[in-house]
């Protein structure tokens, strides 16, 4: 294995570590959006597919590349759209007048 390979392993290791640290802090509430989000993000493999499809080396590799581009684009577009659609739904409780009154009264009471 050459030096580049080792550098890549470092990148992988550190990214996996960062991922682990962040994702353990994602609440179960958002586990479904998390999964669709990581799905959309890993559609970055599109950049690899683009090179294969556009390098014009031979017919086989072009066809493989184009199918890969299509599949990855489906994930990218669909993934980000559906994640956004889900996250849009998560709303906090609208503050009811009653709660507002109580919250407003509190600081005065403590004064």
């Amino acid at each position: 294995m050459n030096l580049t390979g080792f550098m890549q392993l470092y990148v992988f290791m550190l990214a996996a570590f960062v991922g682990y640290q962040i994702i353990t802090r994602v609440p179960p509430l958002l586990h479904t959006p998390l999964m669709s989000a990581t799905n959309a993000i890993s559609a970055i493999s599109l950049v690899g597919s683009l090179v294969v499809a556009g390098a014009n080396r031979d017919r086989v590799s072009t066809i493989l590349g184009v199918v890969a581009v299509t599949a990855a684009t489906i994930n990218m577009v669909g993934g980000f759209v559906i994640t956004d659609r889900m996250l849009k739904m998560f709303r906090r409780e609208p503050a009811t007048p009653k709660v507002d009154a109580a919250a407003a009264a509190k600081p005065e009471a403590t004064k």
């Binding site: 890549q8 990148v11 992988f12 290791m13 990214a15 996996a16 960062v18 991922g19 682990y20 994702i23 998390l34 999964m35 990581t38 799905n39 993000i41 890993s42 970055i44 493999s45 950049v47 690899g48």
Partner: peptide, 14 residues
């Protein structure tokens, strides 16, 4: 390609 490695690692960890 490093960005692929990073995104894949994040997805894998998740």
């Amino acid at each position: 390609n490093n960005v692929l490695i990073i995104a894949g690692a994040l997805d894998g960890a998740s």
